[in-house]
Write a protein that binds this DNA or RNA. Structure first.
Length: 342
DNA sequence: AAAAATGATTCTTG
DNA sequence: CAAGAATCATTTTT
């Protein structure tokens, strides 16, 4: 009962001390003549250790270890620690996997930057290139592709070497701290849990650095992607014959230059381009024609003549076969066009 | 080197 | 969702 009341008073209700601990401390108290004085001295010496030379410190440390007070102080520290451990326990919550980090990791994995070495990378690059290229050219795709892959490999290599560097530094530092703690555990009590916590803290710090690395790597990959997979950056003009076919269709359907899906497919096949390229072309053509009809007059005449000649060759007619300067005689411009003057 | 042309993308609209 | 419009980034022309 005596023990219990003392414990309540001394530990402010924190509990957690075993009877053994209390007994230990009790005996310590009896042993000491003037506890305050001696403990103060020892603490002073401990604090002064950092100011001393290594040999000196070593010697002093040894002396302290052999000090008759050492076990007593040790047990006092044990007691204090019992108290603090409790307060620490409340603060320590396991970190939930940060969704941001997960996202970065996933992206890097998908991009083939992290994960298995060469295999993943080239697979991802190939998939990306395939998705971008569609399936038409085949000739110049290879060069861009390999270029992209090379850049990606470069990024991957930098990423991995940096990551390794961090990992190494982390484990080195962890080792160092562990050694320090082990050394210190001779003079003060250190539970495995404490060490564990220390290591966790270190790892968290380093992983935050790693996140920065991941972030910047992601950024680099995104830039690379937009640089190489954005088709408009490596635009090739259609060949002469293709534009000829397209223009022919456009000017011969000038009153309604909206090819149906089937017509688009047909044109795409004839021009060796994709259907969406045909759509793009007509979209651009319509808007640009309408924007400045005058500029396209010559072209319009040219193709009008062309089709007229074709028609004439079929039905050898010469109703009004002369001056090609007749601007699109029967072609009313599609829909209702508001010509923006500029 | 500047200007024009051109294929592609993005955003708004109906 | 497709067409229009504005814009981008490159290629071609001047």
């Amino acid at each position: 009962m005596d023990d219990q009341t003392r414990m309540l008073a001394g530990l402010a209700g924190l509990g957690g001390l075993s009877q053994g601990d209390v007994g230990d401390q009790d005996s310590v108290r009896k042993q000491l003549g003037q506890p305050q004085q001696d403990i103060g001295d020892i603490l002073q010496q401990i604090m002064a250790i950092t100011d001393e030379s290594l040999d000196e410190a070593q010697a002093r440390k040894h002396a302290l270890n052999c000090h008759r007070m050492k076990p007593a102080l040790f047990s006092v520290l044990c007691e204090i620690k019992e108290k603090t451990v409790l307060s620490i326990r409340g603060v320590q919550d396991e970190d939930p996997p940060d969704p941001q980090i997960m996202r970065l990791d996933n992206m890097l994995l998908a991009e083939g930057v992290s994960g298995p070495e060469k295999g993943g990378g080239s697979a991802a690059a190939a998939a990306a290139a395939a998705a971008a290229a569609g399936g038409s050219p085949g000739s110049d795709g290879g060069i861009e592709h390999s270029d992209y892959r090379a850049k990606l490999a470069q990024i991957r290599q930098i990423y991995h070497s940096e990551l390794e560097k961090y990992e190494q530094a982390c484990s080195e530092f962890t080792n160092h701290v562990m050694n320090l703690l082990r050394e210190q555990s001779r003079t003060r009590p250190i539970s495995p849990k404490e060490i564990e916590r220390m290591v966790a803290i270190i790892h968290r710090k380093f992983s935050s650095i790693q996140m920065q690395l991941k972030q910047s790597t992601c950024e680099a990959v995104m830039i690379l992607r937009s640089r190489f997979l954005d088709a408009r950056r490596k635009r090739r003009n259609f060949n002469k014959q293709a534009t000829e076919v397209l223009n022919e269709y456009f000017y011969s359907h000038l009153s309604n230059p909206y090819p149906s899906e089937e017509a688009k497919e047909e044109l795409a096949k004839k021009c060796a381009i994709t259907v969406s390229q045909v759509s793009n072309w007509f979209g651009n053509k319509r808007i640009r024609y309408k924007k400045n009809i005058g500029k396209f007059q010559e072209e319009a005449n040219l193709y009008a003549v062309k089709t007229a000649v074709d028609a004439a060759s079929v039905s050898a007619q010469a109703s009004q076969a002369n001056s090609p300067a007749t601007p699109n005689s029967g072609t009313h411009i599609f829909g209702s066009i508001k010509i923006t003057s500029n």
